[in-house]
Nucleic acid binder design. Structure first.
Length: 940
RNA sequence: GCCCGAGUGGUGAAAUGGUAGACACGAGGGACUUAAAAUCCCUUGGGCAGAAAUGUCCGUGCCGGUUCGAGUCCGGCCUCGGGUACCA
């Protein structure tokens, strides 16, 4: 029996229609099977390395905001391939971290298992968007084959010190041989520990030789780049772990928002402070956004000044202060120590002991958050002790106050109330003197921190401005021997230990209480099995639960694990040679791939990951493993895609939902409802009833027959019911459409709310593109010669697409392609020569449809390695140009003129024009500006 | 407080000192269709005049400046984001 006619006809219709689902599946399979995007480490081609910040695989999966940066980087990767580069474009997972562990604590499921599941889901979602990642190079930070090398780098850090003479890290063995030959000079050879200059006691070479191993190890610990020391840490009781400074926001933990307190704990730290100056200086060599660079500069916080010693009256010790204003030294009226300062207990007189101890207890028990919130409250206590002013010899009282921080400078300041507002407020509050040392400056109400005024009452500095006096004073201080010029950094050493399970074990064991690193051959130290992922009853980290977990069966392992940022500090190198068993990556691979050319990721990592990432790179360079000081030449921070949430209002104490504009008449509470229930501001009431059980029986108070909601722009999250899933969009409109739309939304760096409605535009664009190649009978392109109009439309697009991609203006490229397709459609162009080039031009953005059309055009190879069309200006040459004619900068009319005219001829033509005469109203123009090929402006 | 970034139609936005609002979404009108979907065409910053073609004025957060010409450059504010904050 013959098929009914309409069935056949509708089938035929189908084959000429653009069917993204079929096409996308086909080409994703093709790329996987043919390993199209495998990058070679042995290539004659120039290299290009484009990297995304790899994701933490969370249980929630991807929403449309996550792939934004990946799409942009994929476009660049594909574009660079078209330009003939050997492109490294890898992806992996930052798979250690807190959420998996919190989930494990709640459910008992091993974090390795949930992480595995989450990764599988991420991979599925990523694959559907058609990225050209080289998956053979995937890395996972939680994979022992990976973290073996993270541990290896830790050992290198442990085995290193920072040689200030050579300004680089060197093996600790070198320091040992210095000690063996010259001993250590002490005071003048200070070492950095946690941002505080601390003296290690001097010893001679002979003394060094008499030290036993324990003593030697203790001394060396002061110099190692990975070291164990008592440090003030951000302790988060709720999470049961310490946090790095960048993991604390507003006195609470960044993850979870739990309170954080200061606590002195023995901790592994990394001496990033040794690199402060280089981290600051090298910012000038990289093309990162100003805001990120500025954030890093502030975080490093360089300040120049002097450290000055004040002799204590009746004690052998001195108080060392750091100041950026040595010029104001004659304005000192008291000295303030941090409550934690080590001299406090020693110098406090018996008379003041009770008050001081009280104050210390008070200060200690204030949480970071309270302390920050109560900045305005002045508090402190007098110790009863005095120091001598180094120049005048006058007695200066010593106070303690928590406005002085233990962790910055020396934990002590010289207070100059006339020049520093904090000192001023303190002096007023405790009725301390406010000496005037600046000529003609009113200090009755507030301090004057500027350096313009001439100094008075300042002995040898009298008559100088602050600017001049700083240099003079430092010279005098140095000559007198009670201080020296000094640079201070706000940057602190990075606390490296976490009291958590799901992280890299720190490869350290303890013998006689002394920490030793595990031998390289014994790496990796893998995570042991534990019965629970909780701290022990005695408060030790989860790893302390592991039964019989001992090095060589004898020695206790370190039980803290590395922080989340450990694995991500060097992953860009592992991608270069991910399977290497004998090194973290081969020197050849690292020499070839070199720096990341383009790095794309979120701006929230400004002072965390991006700083550690630079730090480790410099460290590895110091040891000659790599030849570059910066990991990424260019960084782009993609903006956040915000979610739009929809809110309805329920009348309190009832089950009545009231429309937006009527809600003022009642007491209402807002309820976030699923984004899908709203069409603009109109809620689909029937769907709403089905969405939540209690709404089924709700009463609805409508306006003009509709229930209106309000909208809010914020984070996209399950909690607000506004998550848009890329999978759904791949199903409905296809990955190519999604890719185009994400780019079309606006500049990559900008934050923008997601609105799925606009996606129709890019979907129509692809259908239109498809139709250029097809007629009602199917695929139909012509081999005729292209017309000048067609070539012009194409080459206009080639020019702008290339220009715009080169300046990372991804959104305007989409517009350009749309314009080109619109123009070619109007011209009914189906010429092979034009369409072939158009397909290549479109392919970085919409790779699946491009592959399909490319193969239909008869090509055997993937469009991924086609040649980028070359712009030919000849096709854009015009016989005539439409000049806008302005009078005093205001546009009056347009005039077509031959493009060959000289400016003088243009001027003549314009003046001869009758419309010109009309607007001149008989007057003569004062001046005529002719910008060839652009504009004419007559000044009347 | 300090440091960065941003303010343009109903919406997302474009315009690298040279025609402000390209390209889209939405909206309105029309064509095709029995109808719908899809597709195509027209209108769409505001005011004023006009039946219309059209003309004209205003308009890029506000106030000034530089320039023949400013959304764009400079100075001073305002608002909104982001970062940071007793850092001596």
């Amino acid at each position: 029996m013959p098929e009914p006619f309409f069935l056949i006809s509708s089938f035929q219709l189908k084959t000429m229609e653009y069917n993204p689902r079929e096409i996308e599946q086909k080409w994703q399979q093709y790329w996987a099977t043919n390993k199209t995007f495998t990058a070679s480490n042995n290539s004659e081609l120039p290299k290009y390395y484009v990297l995304d910040m790899f994701p933490y695989p969370s249980g929630a999966g991807l929403h449309v905001g996550h792939p934004l940066g990946y799409i942009a980087s994929d476009i660049i990767a594909r574009y660079k391939r078209l330009q003939g580069f050997n492109v490294l474009h890898p992806m992996g997972y930052d798979s250690f971290g807190l959420p998996a562990e919190q989930y494990a604590i709640q459910t008992g499921q091993h974090p390795a298992l949930t992480t595995e599941q989450n990764i599988a889901r991420y991979r599925q979602q990523l694959d559907r968007i058609g990225f050209s990642f080289d998956w053979d190079r995937e890395v996972r930070t939680s994979d022992p084959a990976y973290y073996r090398w993270t541990q290896w780098i830790f050992i290198r850090l442990f085995d290193s010190w920072y040689n200030r003479q050579n300004d680089k890290a060197e093996p600790i063995s070198q320091l040992v041989s210095i000690f063996e030959q010259h001993g250590f000079q002490g005071a003048e050879a200070q070492v950095l520990t946690g941002g505080i200059e601390r003296d290690v006691q001097a010893f001679s070479a002979d003394e060094w030789k008499t030290f036993d191993e324990k003593k030697k190890m203790e001394v060396l610990m002061n110099f190692r780049l990975a070291y164990l020391d008592d440090s003030w840490v951000n302790w988060c009781p709720a999470l049961g772990t310490v946090l790095a400074n960048d993991e604390v926001k507003d006195g609470v933990s960044e993850r979870g928002g739990h309170p954080v307190e200061r606590k002195l704990m023995k901790q592994w730290s990394l001496r990033i402070t040794a690199y402060s100056e280089r981290l600051l200086r090298d910012l000038d060599t990289i093309d990162w956004s100003d805001s990120i660079k500025e954030a890093q500069r502030n975080w490093i916080g360089k300040s120049e000044g002097a450290s000055i010693r004040f002799d204590l009256v009746g004690h052998a010790e001195t108080i060392e202060v750091f100041t950026t204003r040595p010029d104001t030294i004659f304005g000192v009226s008291f000295v303030v120590l941090a409550p934690e300062h080590e001299l406090v207990s020693k110098i406090t007189t018996s008379q003041h002991k009770a008050v001081v101890e009280n104050y210390i207890t008070y200060a200690k028990n204030r949480s970071e958050r309270e302390r920050q919130a109560e900045v305005k409250n002045v508090s402190g206590a007098f110790t009863g002790a005095y120091v001598k002013h180094p120049f005048t010899g006058k007695l200066v009282p010593v106070w303690i106050a928590d406005y002085v921080l233990a962790g910055y400078g020396t934990g002590a300041v010289m207070a100059v109330p006339c020049g520093d507002q904090r000192d001023f407020v303190f002096a007023k509050h405790f009725d301390l003197p406010i000496p005037a040392i600046m000529e003609g400056v009113d200090i009755s109400e507030k301090a004057d921190p500027t350096k313009e005024a001439k100094l008075i009452n300042s002995d040898f500095l009298n008559g100088l401005t602050g600017y001049e006096a700083i240099r003079v004073c430092i010279a005098k201080i140095e000559a007198s021997g009670f201080g020296k010029g000094k640079v201070n950094y706000r940057l602190r050493d990075a606390i490296f230990g976490r009291q958590r399970y799901w992280g890299e074990p720190i490869p350290v064991y303890y013998k006689d209480g002394i920490p030793y690193c595990v031998e390289e051959n014994d790496l990796p130290v893998t995570l042991p099995e534990v019965d629970k992922f909780l701290p022990t009853e005695t408060g030790e980290p989860p790893l302390a639960r592991a039964a019989n977990w001992k090095h060589q069966g004898k020695y206790e392992y370190e039980t803290t694990t590395m922080p989340g940022w450990a694995g991500s500090s060097w992953y860009f190198l592992r991608y270069m040679d991910p399977k290497n068993q004998s090194a973290f990556a081969s020197r050849e691979a690292m020499a070839y791939w070199n720096q990341v050319d383009l790095y794309i990721g979120g701006a929230e990592h400004a002072t965390g990951h991006l700083l550690y990432f630079r730090f480790w790179t410099k460290f590895l360079m110091d040891f000659g493993f790599i030849e570059f000081a910066e990991p990424a030449k260019k960084l782009i921070n993609q903006g956040m895609i915000q979610g739009v949430s929809k809110i309805v209002y329920r009348i309190n104490g009832s089950n009545k939902i009231v429309s937006r504009n009527l809600r003022d008449k009642y007491e209402t509470s807002p309820i976030h409802v699923d984004l899908k229930l709203a069409d603009g501001d109109v809620i689909n009431v029937e769907e709403l009833k089905k969405w939540r059980d209690d709404f089924a029986s709700a009463e609805f108070i409508l306006e003009e027959g509709q229930l209106l909601c309000t909208s809010e722009v914020g984070k996209m999250s399950k909690r607000w019911h506004n998550v848009v899933n890329p999978d759904d969009l791949c199903d409905s409109v296809g990955a190519d459409t999604l890719r185009l739309y994400e780019m079309f939304l606006g500049p990559l760096e900008q934050h923008k709310p997601w609105d799925t409605k606009g996606i129709e535009g890019t979907s129509r664009f692809l259908k239109k593109l498809w139709r250029l190649f097809h007629n009602e009978n199917g695929f139909a392109v012509s081999d005729e010669t292209a017309s000048p109009e067609e070539l012009k439309a194409l080459h206009k697009a080639i020019k702008k697409v290339v220009e715009d991609i080169d300046r990372y203006s991804f959104n305007t490229v989409v517009s350009t392609l749309m314009i080109c397709v619109n123009e070619l459609s109007d011209l009914k162009c189906n010429k092979r020569s034009v369409l072939s080039e158009l397909v290549v031009l479109v392919s970085p953005y919409a790779p699946h449809i491009a592959e399909e059309l490319w193969s239909k055009l008869g090509n055997r190879n993937s469009v991924s390695f086609a040649k980028l069309p070359e712009f030919n200006p000849a096709f854009l040459v015009e016989d005539s140009i439409t000049y806008p004619i302005q009078f005093n900068g205001k546009l009056r009319f347009n005039l077509d003129l031959p493009s060959a005219l000289t400016p003088a001829e243009i001027e003549k033509e314009v003046l001869a024009n009758e419309q010109t005469q009309k607007y001149l109203e008989g007057k003569l123009p004062k001046k005529i500006i002719v910008v060839p090929k652009r504009i004419v402006n007559l000044v009347v």
